[in-house]
Design a protein around this nucleic acid. Structure first.
Length: 759
RNA sequence: GCCGGGAUGGCGGAAUUGGCAGACGCGCAGGACUCAAACUCCUGUAUGGGCAACCAUGUGCGGGUUCGAUUCCCGCUCCCGGCACCA
């Protein structure tokens, strides 16, 4: 008989909720065992929970549940990354306020997550759009501002015309907006930045000791883009000035036959000669029109123009021409390069197009230039010209000078009287109440900053707030932070490699320096779940129509089946396609477990039938679960249940097995645990002890090879000696046949493994 | 171009880090139960040959080390991901 998940699952969910089972409190006597397990909190979209969320949360939920049964004291919270564009775009379309949309989405997500049976501490749930939360986002901004880590400057920034806002470098993918894929343009705007580059060396060096996937560390290293070389000064011949260039190959200076400046370089106007001014101006205009996307698409054809000016190569003392070209970027190095066409492919290509001289040289050390390290990483642009985010707590005096909003005025609430339609200026600029509030607090002519913060600011510290979510005087109390932090295990998608994960690290380094944290690295161990693809092997998307909705799966097969199937599909970190039949196999497995329980529930508890198999299973499930190798742990449980179905099982043995199953299929496990006459919750029982002696096989199958090929398999005692094995092997007919060829020259015996005879 | 990861049956995947390749699940084929269907259970299922025991071949391709290689070394091919006129 199949069990009725529709009856069992809601019953236990209700019971857990009423017993506050997931809640955890600081307890000095348990500090040594205190762990912090964290999953990346979701953006509460209207689409609801995705099977990818379920995968990530189930994985860590299983590890957490097992560790708790092992006596560990674990913080495992959940919350919502609730500010963001989709809710605002929805508001533009329908007029429903983002706060309302978000509230509904959070309720739906919460219902869905509870229906899957995650053991989160719901008493600590938070939402970044809650004023009690963003009060502290703003407070942190103020600390950064007061300590020079947040500043405003005019700079060329990424502008998405479709989203009507600026974007951080990290949010530009292949020259397009990461959200809407619209081409990103460059604009000169005055914007707020966080000085993440101040921590570039620490962010790079800190990676070494982290237990993170190597690929992800590499992505962060690439993004930081450290490059060591030299800066060399070139004297310009006519206007009396110098051009500094950055190069990683100062040893090729003798081969530098021209200089190139980025079109935006500040010295271009000063050095260009009258004869070339018109051409240079035209080129600059043309270059500024190109988006980053177009620039990279035009990689093949290099273009540039001569400025009419010359510089002196300090090594050769030759006059070399100065050009401008858009293959040199104003944002990297000094925005100027020395071109060595003999040693650099790009320079050679350019030289060939414009018939510039190419000078073959042997690289050699020289005394010119000074050592210099450059980085690709830029400061983090945090202002957004959008509504649904935390207001930047800055106020401008009538002269336009920026001042921090007084901490006593926090939270600086998002006004409600706004027009959502983004016109390139923040909707907050249109709020009459916001304008009045500034004047009431600061006087006539004072204005609040009208931009809001990038939502990645909100998510850069949420894991700190979980430690002390209702603290009204601080973002989290020192004692609470010391008790739980840093995060021991963090699970989430790889898409945040250079976004959230880099920003959150920066926050912790900065807050540490400001005296608010006793640690620097927030996430000691990190694992990425793979992507669950649609049954067609493609990424799930509405337009493809291949989306699997967790609600449907819970309704049809039950939450335990959903959890277990997602863990059984393949290695946790791998991408894997959904298989509609595969989930049936997992449900069949759980039904088999149910049938076993029905069979043995009236048995005496001390009957032992398959002790050896049970202890092998305890070992395998314990080790594999801890290592997040869920698929092989489940495979072993299936082997065990097949065995038990065939050979019979004792009630005590089944109870032990149910403990192993519990982290994976918590509802069914609770039900069977009770059915077998056990008292209390299965999660209050201690994790089964593994006994090596009981798992030991007496007899093993030992393959016998002749010249490395298996010729027979002997059933022998597991501790058989080489001599005994050799005698048995030589008596075997098939082995004799192959030994007949000659004398045994060599015997290889691997104890408990195999015997190989070489002739 | 640079960096990281990968390639194993019809499919998802497993293999104690050098020791019986294909565990477990799906699918498929045959059988039992049933008036019948569903559920469940049993048997088989890498490929070729053979009634069979067994034999040969086989982990992307080509070499190598070893008694023994999916695993280690050298040289390729293809796929996925990241970065990229980054000087």
């Amino acid at each position: 008989m199949p069990y009725d998940h529709k009856e069992i699952e809601p019953k236990w969910q209700k019971r857990w909720e009423e017993s506050h089972a997931g809640e955890v409190r600081e307890d000095p006597s348990k500090k040594g065992d205190a762990l912090y397990h964290l999953v990346m909190f979701p953006y509460p979209s209207g689409e609801g929970l995705h099977v990818g969320h379920v995968e990530s949360y189930t994985g860590l939920d299983i590890v957490t549940r097992m560790a708790r049964m092992n006596g560990q004291h674990i913080l495992f919270p959940m919350g919502f990354d609730a500010f963001g564009l989709p809710a605002e775009n929805y508001a533009i379309k329908t007029g429903v306020h983002p706060a309302e949309t978000t509230k509904r989405a959070i309720e739906n997500f919460t219902r869905q997550m509870k229906s899957v049976g995650f053991s989160f501490d719901w008493s600590r749930a938070l939402s970044t759009s809650d004023p009690e939360y963003y009060k502290w986002t703003q407070w942190i901004f103020l600390q950064f501002f007061k300590n020079g880590l947040a500043y405003k400057k005019k700079a060329p920034v990424n502008w998405c015309e479709s989203c009507k806002t600026v974007l951080a470098n990290e949010q530009v993918i292949d020259g397009a907006c990461e959200r809407c894929h619209h081409a990103v343009a460059q604009k000169d705007l005055e914007q707020w930045f966080f000085n993440i580059t101040k921590y570039v060396e620490q962010l790079l060096g800190g990676l070494d000791d982290l237990d993170w996937p190597e690929s992800l560390k590499t992505m962060q290293r690439n993004w930081i883009g450290k490059s060591e070389g030299a800066e060399i000064n070139f004297a310009v011949c006519r206007p009396d000035t110098n051009i500094r260039v950055f190069t990683t190959r100062p040893d090729t200076l003798f081969g530098a036959t021209y200089l190139i400046l980025a079109p935006e370089h500040e010295l271009v106007d000063a050095i260009v000669t009258d004869d070339f001014r018109a051409k240079v101006e035209a080129y600059k205009v043309q270059a500024s029109k190109k988006s980053a996307l177009e620039r990279s698409e035009m990689q093949k054809e290099k273009t540039g123009v001569f400025t009419g000016a010359f510089a002196l190569n300090p090594a050769t003392e030759e006059k070399i021409p100065i050009w401008i070209a858009d293959y040199v970027l104003s944002t990297y190095g000094t925005g100027a390069i020395m071109a060595v066409p003999a040693h650099d492919e790009r320079d050679r290509e350019f030289a060939e197009v414009y018939h510039l001289s190419i000078k073959d040289i042997v690289p050699e050390e020289n005394e010119f230039g000074t050592k210099k390290t450059t980085y690709r990483l830029r400061d983090w642009l945090v202002s957004r010209q959008r509504y649904w985010g935390a207001p930047i707590p800055v106020v401008y005096d009538p002269e336009g000078k920026a001042h921090p909003v007084g901490e006593e005025h926090l939270p600086l609430l998002l006004p409600i009287d706004v027009d959502f339609r983004p016109e390139g200026e923040s909707p907050l600029a249109l709020s009459e109440s916001y304008r009045q509030l500034a004047e009431n607090l600061y006087g006539e002519g004072w204005r609040f900053e009208v931009d809001t913060m990038d939502t990645f600011v909100d998510s850069s510290w949420y894991f700190l707030r979980y430690c002390d979510p209702s603290n009204a005087t601080m973002f989290a109390g020192h004692d609470k932070l010391d008790y739980w932090c840093p995060v021991d295990v963090y699970v989430g998608g790889v898409e945040h490699a250079v976004l959230h994960l880099l920003y959150a690290r920066f926050f912790c380094y900065a807050l540490h320096d400001l005296g608010h944290l006793n640690f620097t690295e927030p996430f000691l161990k990190l694992r990425n779940q793979g992507m669950i693809l649609g049954p067609d092997g493609q990424k799930m998307s509405k337009s493809r129509g291949n989306v699997i909705n967790p609600d449907d799966v819970v309704a049809d097969f039950g939450a335990d089946t959903l959890r277990m199937y997602e863990m059984f599909m393949g290695p946790f970190e791998d991408d894997k396609p959904w298989d509609t039949n595969g989930i049936l196999g997992v449900r069949r497995f759980l039904d088999k477990v149910w049938r076993l329980a029905e069979q043995v529930k009236h048995q005496r508890p001390d009957v032992k039938k398959i002790e050896r198999e049970l202890h092998k299973t305890i070992k395998k499930v314990s080790e594999d679960t801890a290592a997040m190798k869920f698929n092989t742990a489940i495979s072993q449980m299936m082997i065990f249940v097949n065995h038990a179905t065939a050979k019979g099982i004792g009630l005590g043995e089944l109870s032990t097995f149910i403990q192993l199953l519990a982290p994976y299929a918590p509802h069914l496990a609770e039900e069977i645990w009770k059915m077998l006459g056990q008292t209390g919750s299965v999660f209050e029982s201690p994790w089964p002890m593994f006994d090596e002696a009981l798992a030991q096989d007496e007899k093993i199958q030992m393959p016998v090879q002749v010249n490395g090929k298996v010729r027979t398999t002997l059933e022998v005692a597991s501790d058989i000696t080489e001599e005994e094995a050799l005698l048995l092997a030589q008596a075997d007919e098939n082995v004799k046949k192959y030994l007949g060829l000659g004398e045994v020259k060599k015997v290889i015996f691997v104890k408990g493994r195999l015997l190989n005879l070489v002739v």
